[in-house]
Design a protein around this nucleic acid. Structure first.
Lengths: 93, 93
DNA sequence: AATCTATTTAGAAATATATCTAAATAGATT
DNA sequence: AATCTATTTAGATATATTTCTAAATAGATT
């Protein structure tokens, strides 16, 4: 789970939208899939990549799978960008 | 220059290494290329993508082209990650 | 147990990406 | 002007990615 993998995962707009959607709380694969014009299979593929990279986790309940955000994992990326030259927003540099 | 493009550009390890190399100051395409086991043509291709995404700029002098880092452009990415769940502010955690 | 529901996996096709070699460009030097 | 040097562009190829449809799995309900 290196930086390349994390960034490659975040580089896709569908996956970023999934992450944004999960900000409002855990959701089932089906709920997530319904908000895209993509098949469930395709969304499942994206969920798998997000899970592998550690951005989301899953929790089974009945025959639903709830996905939720793992915000801690974004930190490696933040650290790298800081090192390399970002300063950003509202923060002293 | 959307977020997808920026992140896709940063997702490649060669391009991140180029960025890291440029942290020490402007360098010619040749100098950059020499530090990789890749042809000049390949490195030139990566420099083009980095330039298109706004991460680096070029400055011509004689028949050399110096490339240098544009650190400001990392901010969109930082902003997105913050929104989505990072905490982090450059201090160790 | 049979079936229904939610989701994933497998396989295929289209598109995108990274790399190479060879050729082209553009400026500097002789 | 001829040539050398630094770099990019073009074209080709191999690999990776995204998407689909169809089939498989696993748990819940009847």
């Amino acid at each position: 789970m290196g930086l390349s993998e994390s960034m490659k995962v975040l580089a896709d707009p569908v996956r970023r939208q999934i992450i944004e959607k999960l900000k409002t709380g855990p959701q089932t694969a089906g709920e997530i899939a319904n908000s895209f014009e993509l098949t469930n299979a395709t969304v499942s593929y994206h969920l798998k990549l997000l899970k592998q990279a550690g951005f989301i986790s899953e929790m089974k309940d009945k025959n639903f799978i709830y996905y939720s955000l793992n915000s801690t994992v974004f930190e490696d990326i933040l650290t790298w960008i800081y090192q390399v030259g970002g300063k950003k927003n509202g923060q002293a540099d």
